[in-house]
Design a protein around this nucleic acid. Structure first.
Length: 648
RNA sequence: GCCGAAGUAGCUCAGUGGUAGAGCAACGGUUUUGUAAACCGUAGGUCGUCAGUUCAAAUCUGAUCUUCGGCUCCA
C-alpha cells in the first residue's frame, strides 16, 4: 500500500476519540495523555478484553487504560506473579512440571508436578528468594503468537511439559500465545498462556507465598496429583501488610479458636467428627436466636411443627432421596426394617400437608421447623461449626397456588432482610436457573424462574444470575452473607421444588372442584444454626450484642467491704431480668476488668467507696472503656432499651 | 474420599533414643486493691490409640483415629 495511514483513531473510556500514530501501543497512548497516567498504567481493556499494556492498538479500538487504582489491575499483577513463581520453582526444582496458575481473590496460585520432591514450608522461603531475584532482574513479559501449535505441542512434550502440551492442544484453534520471560533480550522461561500480564517483573512490588497444598490436574481426582503453592501480591508493601493484618484479624476471629477461648462449643473424638457439643454460653445465644426466629415466623404466618429424626426407608423411596442422596445418608436397621436418619425435613412436611385435604382457600400453608438433620460429609470437609454432620436447619416449606407464588417469595425475601439486618449482616442474592439434568416441564421452569426474578425485582434487590446452577428439581435464590470484615458466607436459600409434590402426589381442591398440585418452596434463612453461629462468632469477634450475651453485666467490687453494696446492685438488676454476676474473688480491679474483657461481657459495674457513698455505679463498657457514673435507674433504662431493641 | 502437615497438662507451646518441662488457668495461702495481669506455694500428663524395632521410644517404623491447609462437595 502506497498510502500508509500514519495515524489511527481509538475510542477512550469517556467516548472521546483520540488520534495516535499507527503502531502505537497502549503505553504510548497513556504517555500521550499524561506522564503520570503512563506511570500508573498496568494494562488495557481493549474492546472489553484485558490486554497487555504494550499491545499494539488498531483503528477503532475501544481502549481503557487500567491503572493500579483499578481492581482489574490485580488480575495482571497476580497472574504475572504466578508466572514468576512458576519460573522460580522450575529454576530450583529441575523436575518440576507446570500445570496452571491463575490469579484468584487476593492472590494467586500455581500447580506443579514435582515427582522427586515434596514441597515444605522451608522451600517457600527459598522460592520467595528466587522470585525476588527474578523480580530484581527486571525481566520482561513478552507475548508471542504460536505460529505452529502442533510443532509447539511436540516441543512441550519433548521437554516433559505434558500439561502445557495438553492445554495448548485444547486451545490450538483460539489464537494461542506463549509468554516469555526475557532478560536482556534472552528468553529465560516461557509458558503457554493467553495473558494478560504486566510489562516487567519489576512491577511486582510486594508479594508473599502463603501455603502449600494438594490439587489435581483439572480438579479431577482420577488425574495427576499436583502440588499447589498459594501466594499473594500487591502494588505496595503497605497493601501487602494491610492484607497480612487482615489475615491475622480473621485468624483471631476464627470461630474454632474463639469457641475454645470463650468456652462456646466443642467437638470431641469420643462423640465424633462433625458433631457439635453446644456449651451453655453458645446454647444460650442459640436459644435467644431461636426464640427470635420463632416469634418472627409466627408473626409472618408460619406454623411451627416438629418431626422425627428417623423415618422408614419407604419415605425416602417415595421422596427419591434413596436414589439421589444415598451417599449422604446414615442408614440403620431396626426390627429388620431399614430406617434412615433424616438428611432433610421436607418429606415430613409434605406428609403433614398431605395428611388432610386442602381447599384452595387454605393456601398458602407455611410449615416451619428447627429441624435437626444428619448428613454424611466426606471426612476432609468438616470445618468447626460451619460444615458438620449434624445440624439444625431453620427450615420451612411453603405450599401455595401459582397465583400466590410471587408474593410468597417476596415474603421470604422480606424475612431474610429483616433477620439479617438485626445482626448487621450485609447480603447479596444470586439466582440459579435450570440445569441440564432438570426434571419438570419447561413451562414450569419458565414460570418459576420468571416468578423468582419478579419477586427479586419487586423487592428492589439486585442479583447475580447463575445460569444452569439450579437444583435438578427447581430454580433457587441463594443469599451470600458478608460479615464485619468482609468475608462471604453461604446464607439463606429459597428453592422451588417440582419434584416432591409430584412424587408424593399432593393436591388441593381448586375453586372449580378440580384437583391441583400446589407449588412447593423450600427455604432456610440462617441455613443452619451451626453455621450462623459460626458466622456470628466471627462477625462479632465473640463479643455478642447485649441481647444475645449469656452474661450481660458483671459487678466488680473493689474490695470485700463493697460486697454488700455490690449485692444490692446485682439484686436490683436481677429483678429486671438482667443476667448478672458478681466477681467476688480477692483479685485487683485491674485483674477483674481484664478477665471480664477477655470473657467479652458487655458491661462491667465497678463498685467502690465513691459509688457506695454517692449511691451510684461506675459503668465500663466492653472494648469502649469507662463510661463514667450512672444512677442505677438510668443504667437500667439504658440497657433495657438496648435489649428490647436488640441493638448491635 | 484424595494430597500434605500436625496431635505432649484444661489452654498455648518447648522437649528428636537414656528419669516428661514452661507460661497461663485450677487449687491453697498472703495481699483489700479504682478501669486490661498482686505475691508465694501445691497439684496436674501411661506424650491421640494400637502394634513393631530397641537394653531403652514422646522421640524411629507401620496401622488407625482426630485436627489443620487445600482439592472435591455442601446448609
Amino acid at each position: 500500500m502506497s498510502q500508509t495511514q500514519t495515524t489511527i483513531s481509538v475510542i477512550l473510556k469517556d467516548g472521546t476519540k483520540k488520534e495516535i500514530p499507527t503502531g502505537s501501543t497502549g503505553l504510548d497512548l497513556a504517555k500521550s495523555i499524561s506522564n503520570s497516567l503512563a506511570k500508573k498504567s498496568v494494562g488495557l481493556s481493549v474492546n472489553g478484553e484485558l490486554q497487555d499494556l504494550v499491545t499494539v492498538l488498531k483503528d477503532g479500538d475501544r481502549v481503557e487504560i487500567i491503572t493500579q487504582d483499578d481492581e482489574r489491575s490485580y488480575e495482571f499483577l497476580r497472574h504475572s506473579s504466578a508466572h514468576v513463581l512458576a519460573a522460580a520453582v522450575q529454576n530450583l526444582f529441575k523436575s518440576a512440571k507446570i500445570a496452571n496458575g491463575p490469579a484468584i481473590e487476593d492472590g494467586f496460585y500455581y500447580d506443579f508436578e514435582i515427582r522427586d520432591h515434596q514441597l515444605t514450608p522451608e522451600d517457600l522461603l527459598k522460592i520467595e528468594k528466587e522470585m525476588q531475584r527474578i523480580v530484581d532482574e527486571e525481566q520482561k513479559f513478552l507475548q508471542v503468537k504460536v505460529e505452529n501449535p502442533d510443532k509447539q505441542i511436540e516441543e512441550f512434550k519433548k521437554i516433559g511439559e505434558k500439561f502445557k502440551a495438553e492445554n495448548l492442544n485444547e486451545h490450538k484453534d483460539h489464537n494461542p500465545t506463549l509468554y516469555l520471560l526475557q532478560k536482556d533480550g534472552k528468553t529465560t522461561w516461557n509458558d503457554f498462556c493467553k495473558g494478560p500480564h504486566i510489562t516487567t517483573s519489576k512491577q511486582i512490588k510486594a508479594f508473599k507465598l502463603l501455603s502449600i497444598s494438594g490439587a489435581y490436574w483439572h480438579g479431577d481426582e482420577t488425574r495427576e496429583k499436583l502440588q499447589r503453592i498459594y501466594g499473594t501480591s500487591w502494588w505496595s508493601k503497605e497493601d501487602l501488610d494491610a492484607y497480612i493484618n487482615r489475615l491475622e484479624e480473621a485468624e483471631k476471629r476464627d470461630h474454632r479458636k474463639l469457641g475454645r477461648q470463650l468456652d462456646l462449643f466443642s467437638i470431641q473424638d469420643e462423640t465424633g467428627p462433625g458433631l457439635i457439643l453446644w456449651h451453655p454460653k453458645l446454647a444460650f445465644v442459640r436459644t435467644q436466636i431461636e426464640n427470635f426466629w420463632r416469634e418472627l415466623h409466627s408473626k409472618n404466618g408460619y406454623e411451627l411443627v416438629y418431626t422425627p429424626h428417623i423415618a422408614r426407608n419407604e419415605l425416602w423411596n417415595i421422596s427419591g432421596h434413596n436414589e439421589f442422596y444415598k451417599e449422604n445418608m446414615f442408614y440403620m436397621n431396626i426390627d429388620d426394617q431399614e430406617y434412615v436418619l433424616k438428611p432433610m425435613n421436607c418429606p415430613f412436611h409434605v406428609k403433614i400437608f398431605d395428611s388432610t385435604r386442602h381447599s384452595y382457600r387454605d393456601l398458602p400453608i407455611r410449615l416451619a421447623e428447627l429441624g435437626t438433620v444428619y448428613r454424611y460429609e466426606r471426612s476432609g470437609v468438616m470445618h468447626g461449626l460451619a460444615r458438620v454432620r449434624g445440624f439444625t436447619q431453620d427450615d420451612a416449606h411453603i405450599f401455595c397456588r401459582k397465583d400466590q407464588f410471587v408474593d410468597e417469595i417476596k415474603g421470604v425475601i422480606k424475612l431474610v432482610d429483616e433477620i439479617y439486618s438485626k445482626f448487621g449482616l450485609e447480603y447479596s442474592a444470586e439466582l440459579s436457573t435450570k440445569p441440564k439434568d432438570a426434571i419438570g416441564s419447561n413451562e414450569n421452569w419458565e414460570f418459576a424462574e420468571a416468578g423468582l426474578m419478579e419477586a427479586l425485582k419487586g423487592y428492589g434487590l439486585n442479583y447475580q444470575l447463575n445460569p444452569g446452577d439450579g437444583a435438578f428439581y427447581g430454580p433457587k435464590i441463594d443469599f451470600k452473607l458478608k460479615d464485619a470484615i468482609g468475608r462471604v458466607w453461604q446464607g439463606a436459600t429459597i428453592q422451588l421444588d417440582f419434584n416432591l409434590p409430584q412424587r408424593f402426589d399432593i393436591k388441593y381442591t381448586d375453586k372449580d372442584g378440580s384437583q391441583q398440585q400446589p407449588v412447593m418452596v423450600h427455604r432456610a434463612i440462617f441455613g443452619s444454626l451451626e453455621r450462623i453461629a459460626a458466622v456470628l462468632i466471627e462477625h462479632f469477634a465473640g463479643a455478642f450484642p447485649l441481647w444475645l450475651s449469656h452474661k450481660q453485666v458483671i459487678v466488680l467490687p473493689i474490695t470485700d467491704r463493697h460486697l454488700d453494696y455490690a449485692n444490692k446492685i446485682a439484686t436490683a438488676l436481677k429483678e429486671k431480668n438482667v443476667r448478672i454476676e458478681i466477681d467476688t474473688r480477692a483479685e485487683s480491679v485491674n485483674s477483674k476488668i481484664r478477665d471480664a474483657e477477655l470473657e467479652k461481657i458487655p458491661y462491667m459495674i465497678i463498685i467502690g467507696d465513691n459509688e457506695a457513698r454517692e449511691n451510684n455505679i461506675s459503668v465500663r463498657a466492653r472494648k469502649k472503656g469507662d463510661l463514667g457514673k450512672f444512677n442505677l435507674e438510668d443504667f437500667i433504662v439504658k440497657i433495657e432499651k438496648e435489649i428490647s431493641e436488640k441493638s448491635i
